[in-house]
């Protein structure tokens, strides 16, 4: 299979891809230690912001990497036939304190998928659910058309 063409997607194409998906891979880091997790999100194409609920246990490595307002990358991709599209978002993940939640936030999080509590071995009361908004500094979308050799 050979590479035929790689093209930068338009803002409209990029927003459309991010809107029709609801999961991606979020990458964090601490010094030289990387940490990547699958997440679900709601995307506001007008504000170009991502809304996430991230679940962790208090002493988990995930909680450690999420502390403060970390710089992150989010990757969302799809493959349809010979067309491969990917979007890479870089920005800062801001936690939303409970007393900062507005009706607008409630509406935005209504579009985000529910956390899958059943995948956690811990009791629900031991899980910490933190709300975050990812405010991108860059959003880059690419489309690759592959050519079949045979």
């Amino acid at each position: 299979m050979g590479l035929e063409q790689e093209t930068e997607m338009t803002r409209e194409e990029t927003d459309a891809l991010l809107s029709r998906h609801e999961t991606g891979v979020l990458s964090l880091a601490s010094d030289d230690d990387p940490y990547a997790i699958p997440i679900s999100y709601g995307y506001d194409a007008d504000e170009r912001q991502f809304y996430m609920r991230l679940v962790s246990t208090p002493d988990s490595k995930k909680r450690e990497f999420l502390s403060g307002s970390p710089t992150v990358r989010l990757v969302v991709y799809e493959e349809a036939g010979r067309t491969y599209r990917s979007v890479v978002v870089s920005g800062v993940l801001h936690p939303i304190a409970r007393d900062e939640i507005t009706p607008e936030h409630v509406e935005q999080y209504g579009d985000a998928k529910r956390p899958l509590f059943e995948i956690w071995g811990d009791a629900r009361k031991d899980l910490d659910i933190q709300l975050y908004v990812l405010r991108p500094e860059t959003i880059s979308g690419r489309r690759i058309e592959l050519e079949l050799d045979q």
Binding site: P103, E107, P115
Partner: peptide, 17 residues
């Protein structure tokens, strides 16, 4: 009241129920 209405319309903001 506006938060109450938003929660009833969209579900729990924390867990989505």
């Amino acid at each position: 009241p506006s938060m109450r209405d938003a929660l009833v319309a969209n579900g729990c903001v924390v867990c989505g129920a």
